[in-house]
Structure formats: C-alpha cells, structure tokens
Amino acid sequence: MIPHHTLTGPEDAPVLALGNALGTTTDLWRDFSLPFRLLRFDHRGHGGSAPVPGPCTIEALATDVVELLDHLGLRQVYYCGVSLGGMVGMWLAAHTDRISRLALVCTTAWYPDKSGWDERISAVRSQGMPAVADAVVSRWFTPAFSPAVVARFRAELLNVDVASYLACAEAIRDVDLRPDLVKIDVPTVVIAAAQDHATPPECARHIADDLPDSELYIVGDAAHLAVVEARRTISVILDDHFGND
C-alpha cells in the first residue's frame, strides 16, 4: 500500500524520509525545520493512511515505504525513524539499497521481555485504545513537559485504527533485527533519550555496537518521543549527520 504522505521543502534538496512511532502520525514532525525535502508518512491505520486487514510485520511496513518511494520516483533517500519507524529504517537499510544515510531515534532491535507488549495488546483487544492511552503517553514524555502537547498526542493515539494498532504492536513485540544490523553499511546516527523507559539508552548502545559505521548520542531531558521534547538538540544532530553526505 502507498501510505498517506506529504513532501515539503526545497525541490533541489535531498529527501529525508521521517518514520513515526507507533500511535503517532506525521504530526510528530510538525515543528521540525531542516534544510531537506521532508517526506512524512503515516503507518497503516494511523493518521491519513488506510487500515490494512490482518497481521503485519516490520518487513511489510518497510515494503509500504518502498512502494511510496517508487510512487514518488525516489531512488534513494535519507531516513530518520523513531521507535517503530526506526525498526522500519533498520530493515530498509539492511535489505534494500534505498537508504543512503540513516538515523535511529529511541528504538530497539528487539525486546528480550515481551510481557509488557502482551499485556498492552490484550488490554487494547478487550477494551480499546482508552485502556492504554494514559500509560502509553506517560512513557512518551517527561512529567514536566507541556500538558497541551501531551493532550494533543493522546488525542491522536485514541484516533488510531484499533486493528492496525494491534497488528503493528504485534510486529514490534515479535521483531528481532539483531541479525540485520551487520548488514547495514550506510552511515548511521543512533540517538537515545536518558529518560526513555520504553527503549532505554542501552537499546541504542546495543544497536550502535553492532553497526559498522555509527555514532551514538544520548540526549538528556527527554523521554521516548525525544524528537518532540528535545527537538532542537536532535535537529542539530540530524542536520550535522545528513549534511555530511
């Protein structure tokens, strides 16, 4: 499927594709200003993208991105992904030649303990998104962060198609990209947030340790959606990384 997307910025600039976290939409990048042509897209059943019936995998979500790039006539792009979007980016960089530079933010290659995902999936399946919304959003931001922004992201989470959320959550629970990391031969920056309890900094260290060409950064006052909470710091890192091509 071709995801809902927007492509904005200077037409002669390199294209930077931006992959979202589970339960978020292109609004995740609303305040980003980078000197690239920004390709924002929504995962299945999120934002403007249609739901796709049945289970899905990280490979299937990555294939959606490949179809999008083909649709837009883009041979190669830079790619930055957060959490689920980062998993998609790792798969793309390991299995295709469509990514020339990669940034991975607050993500992991696998979950050794899947019980938390099992509990979340069970709660959503039986009670819907409201059953997990507060707990999920509390991991996205630090307690002192803007209540208005937190409320905006909570509202977006509640609007995600339930079946699509479950399919993506199961894909995350079952992911194991560790064997793929050694296949990634493009320059990569790995960014973690010190207060991220969903994908703690050790997850980023594991990724960076296994990548042949990577740099690791840990930002301070931010949680899982660090691209929102530490936007300026991460913008500088991304501008430096993608501007060095």
Rank of each mutant, 00 (worst) to 15 (best):
G85C: 01
A103R: 09
G54I: 08
S214W: 01
Q127H: 15
P212N: 07
S126R: 15
R178I: 05
I58C: 09
L216N: 03
S83Y: 03
S164R: 05
G73S: 13
T24C: 14
A192R: 04
A131N: 12
P3L: 05
N159C: 12
L177Q: 12
A103N: 09
G23H: 04
A208P: 03
H4S: 15
A94Q: 05
A21F: 04
P147K: 07
D27F: 09
A169S: 15
V88D: 12
W110K: 15
D97C: 00
A123P: 07
A50M: 08
G86H: 06
W140D: 11
P201C: 01
I121E: 12
H95R: 13
G23R: 12
C106I: 03
R205Q: 11
G73H: 11
A163R: 12
V65S: 14
H5F: 15
D174T: 14
V228I: 14
F32D: 14
V228Y: 01
R125L: 05
P14W: 01
L181E: 11
R120S: 03
V52A: 10
V236T: 15
G86K: 02
R44A: 09
L7K: 10
N20E: 14
V105E: 08
V52E: 12
A148C: 00
I99C: 04
A222S: 07
E229W: 03
L68K: 14
V137M: 11
S214V: 01
C56D: 08
R44V: 01
V175G: 09
W117S: 06
G54A: 06
P14I: 01
D196Q: 08
S100P: 00
G47I: 00
A222W: 03
L158A: 10
D70W: 06
L69T: 10
W117F: 11
S100M: 03
D31P: 06
V15F: 08
M90N: 02
L211P: 03
G220T: 02
H46E: 04
H46A: 06
P212W: 00
T142G: 10
S214Q: 01
D113K: 08
A230D: 09
P212L: 03
A144L: 03
A226M: 01
V82P: 02
E202C: 07
L72Q: 13
V52C: 08
